[in-house]
Nucleic acid binder design. Sequence first.
DNA 1: ACCTGAACACCGTTCAAGT
DNA 2: ACCTGAACACCGTTCAAGT
Lengths: 236, 236
Amino acid sequence: MSPRRVPVSRRDRPAKALLSREGLVATALRIMHDEGLERVTMRRLASELDTGPASLYVYVRNTAELHGALLDELLLGLELPAEAVAAGRPKGSVERWREGLVELLCGYTALLLGHPSLARSVLTLRPSGPNYLRLIEALLGLLRAGGVPERQAAWGVDLLLQHATATAAEQGTRDESVDADGEIHTQAMAIREATGDEYPNIGLVRDELFSGTGEQRLRWMFAALIEGVATTATPA
Amino acid sequence: MSPRRVPVSRRDRPAKALLSREGLVATALRIMHDEGLERVTMRRLASELDTGPASLYVYVRNTAELHGALLDELLLGLELPAEAVAAGRPKGSVERWREGLVELLCGYTALLLGHPSLARSVLTLRPSGPNYLRLIEALLGLLRAGGVPERQAAWGVDLLLQHATATAAEQGTRDESVDADGEIHTQAMAIREATGDEYPNIGLVRDELFSGTGEQRLRWMFAALIEGVATTATPA
DNA sequence: ACCTGAACACCGTTCAAGT
DNA sequence: ACCTGAACACCGTTCAAGT
């Protein structure tokens, strides 16, 4: 029907920015910041880049890989504490490494808390980007600075990162998605209604189950994790 | 066109089992066991129950709530260790409570490892079913039996359950979904290729990052968690 | 080679309308 | 009241075909 020869796009669009992995990730990052990760779909991304969804599969294997790239981009903004840079060589006040660890882990958690659905994705991702490796490197450095044995340090990094990611993923749904916020109330109510008859221990510590701020609990959890990692011997 | 008066269904179908929340959950449970949670969709459930998807919303608020019900049904099959039942009163050999905790947590993890995508869902769920409360009750009982202070015990339950759930969720994708198994290899390769130049600490403990069996690492992680919870003081 | 239109095979949730 | 057909507004991924 309508003539298809008019090359309007040539003048209308800003040069159509040739597709590339970098362009893809940059656009995805922008959408994530503006509208949240759930809006970053292959179809949305494609239409944003003036193409069909199939074209994206030239640059990323699948959605999971795209999410991995987004995480690494985000990690660029995570500054490593000074203690982690001069790794392996303990200096300054004793136990400084613990503070450095908590700081770094809180930073990583805060980063993910800004994008909780990314955290959910990362939890099943085994990230492999250079900036994630830097993070592992820094955590290992701090643990070694604290004199934590090699195997405990190696396994500990897993434990610490998993906890940070899971915490962000868990908090996630609460403020972002519409539906899930009913569930906290439902659980809180269930716990408050749990009779000391059927659930004596819940009855005894009921208030403590809800005590503390998120920040307090998070810092305590990291401290407990670090303590456990530092003092629990691995098998064999 | 075709006459709609023939009540064939009356003879063909097994009485069409009136809709109910229990029936819904039972059907969902069956599909989950046979084909995995990703097949348990509202539409699939509806067609299985000979109705439209809209009808299900009379019995569950949304998918998240349905998943919560599935978890609680699953937890029916989790047996609590004897130590947890006679809670609060330490008896038998000292430190028996630690074994009980590890056992219970491993049991819970194993349960979820059988349905990793349910674990992913549970992580953002704050479950509130009676059987989940029983689990909280048992964990609290064991921690109290170990003389762990109230606040540490309360906050610790959160930490322990989150770790168990996150572990199952993480393992999850690996064997279940098709795509994600590439990522472990990708990460492993990235770590193996990380030069000791750029990543000295990774270079030093490289082998330990991959050492141990899943079972060994899980038990060590729970032991470390428990140790940290038991010995780390909460603020204020 | 690099790219993509069109299709395949699905989703959760809502709401006006029926019984 | 209780229930539901039909629609709304989407998904990820593949593959044959084009340039």
